[in-house]
Design a protein around this nucleic acid. Sequence first.
RNA 1: GCCGGAGUAGCUCAGCUGGCAGAGCGAAUCCUUCGUAAGGAUUAGGCCGAGGGUUCAAAUCCCUCCUCCGGCUCCA
Length: 644
Amino acid sequence: MSEIVVTLPDGSELEVEAGASVEDVAYEIGPGLGEDTVAGVVDGELTDRVEPLYEDCELVIVTEGSEEYLQVLRHSAAHVFAQALQRRHPEAKLAIGPPTDDGFYYDVTGVDLSEDDFEELEAEMREIIAADYDIERVERDREEALEIYADNEYKREILETEAEGEETVSFYVQDGWQDLCRGPHVESTGEIGAVKLLSIAAAYWRGDEENDTLTRVYGTAFESESDLETFLQRREEAKKRDHRKLGTELDLFSIPDVTGPGLPLYHPNGKTVLRELEAFVDGLNDDQGYEFVETPHLFRTELWKQSGHYENYVDDMFLLDVNDEEYGLKPMNCPGHATIFNQGNWSYRDLPIRYAENGKVYRKEQRGELSGLSRVWAFTIDDGHLFIKPDSIEREVNVIMEQIEEVLETFDLEYEVALATRPEKSVGSDEIWETAESQLRDVLEARGLDYDVEPGDGAFYGPKIDFAFEDALGRSWDGPTVQLDFNMPERFDLSYTGEDNEEHQPVMIHRALYGSYERFFMVLVEHFDGNFPTWLAPEQVRILPVSDDNIGYAKQLKNRYLDDFRVEIEDRSWTVGKKIQTAHDDRVPYMLVVGDDEQEAGTVSVRDRFENERKDVDVGTFRNHLENEIGEKHTEPDFVDGSE
RNA sequence: GCCGGAGUAGCUCAGCUGGCAGAGCGAAUCCUUCGUAAGGAUUAGGCCGAGGGUUCAAAUCCCUCCUCCGGCUCCA
């Protein structure tokens, strides 16, 4: 028997006999670990513990404590669901049922299901779990499997594609019920602590709309009821924070039917937040030598033909016929900026040229994709395009990365970085792509960043570095991006005169610090649950006069001391309690309660939206704090907690 | 775009086995002038998403379209 080398997570290597299973290797490491082994991750792929290893590989042993354990458990929960479904509805035909980030789903057909059936199915599932059936892996002849699934075209298709050429395939059996499945699974149904069916939706077989429509049942599973409870609460919280709901409540924006789909209107409150966001990146760009430009929303399609968008992107563009000539709304700002560059004569001394524009773009997304501000037809990019000498790529990309880090840190957002490489549909030579990709890799490595590679995820004109940040609810969002482009300069025939008095082609960099304002704004709304940092808040301070007699004093405060801030006076004749309640609902960072006492002493009572309060505050002291808090972009109002 | 669900007052929703269009919140007016998370009364507010059909009668049943929601695919 030959030996193979298994590399463990700590980097150590273990020689084992070829054909040893994941579990064998675990026992080799230690009997305790062998005992606890649930499954393995072989070269990044989740694998059953009995899976034999024939080649050198990297192996992670999965135990109950592992991150991957939940995935295994949920996969088993999907089986429990399928068994429960078939107990109640023997006619149900199973397609596939994998685990997902949040739980699992099972695609089924031949049965008419609605969420009203969930209670019954969950009860059946709980019975299967309570019975604690052993889950056994059984290898069957592929031919035998084809017979078992004589009338299930989906399972047959799997056997004829994925399992093609295999002699045997694995089934997992529990209580006589079986399912074709690669696994892995937990040892018995009793290991599943808590299950819940969540929703029902349609999905295509293999995600292709040409194929049959299947019924997809989403569910989730956890080790314990309390974990499930936490998950459900978090879901509830996400629903409460939905920016579409908060957008209406806080009067930030609307997308009425008459304006057309995916075409949001920003109300004064929403635009106030956007203006602050704009001012922030405009300032960062100013600091880094960007020049501000502006381009129209509509161009002759000649421009889009030159840029390559017409070729690659036309299905997503809005085209208009104007006097028999074709025009297109801009899906990107770069061709406009390249054209501005082209209006000048540049020497190497002029480079880098850096153009910035908060440019509105239009992309005709599929109708079913549109959703609040997260997916729209018209959105604004905090776009920047740099025209640089090839030898300054590293320096410029580094500066951009620093800008991006500053933005994300300002909002207290954690992030991950990924390098996206050449997609199938792309322009430019292999050589150009390789150079571009390796330059970005160099920058990432020089900065010492951990990064993932996302093959095929680049733009059609070049590779990119994407930043994904995590919001308060643990969801990940794409936003900031740096994209190298060796193609656009070629297509626009961009040039500068070098030291050698020859014409050279500049390299173009596309970059955005937020990504789109729409999406970034939307994420901030949900991240902060509408509780914007004071510097962003549409209304920063609300003065609450205790009685109508104090309105005059309130006006004096506003006009004399707080003129530079966004301050409103609550002059409706309500009780103080109701005024406070309303200000909380409106998520105003600071309330100044002013009654006769304050008026006589010339002070204010400061209350923040956390219920913290400080009385007898000198207006000047509060004013100075506010100036600092806003200037330094604190994420929370901190006057009352503050140190002064 | 495709599959499923939904559209009723500014907002959240009830009414839907056909028979006078409803509630709460919000708004306006009046009373109350109030000291830290919702004081009271009155009033206004509707092409029941749009168009067509069935019927003595349609918010309710049928058809077409529009929009939204949940998915699929895609993406900032």
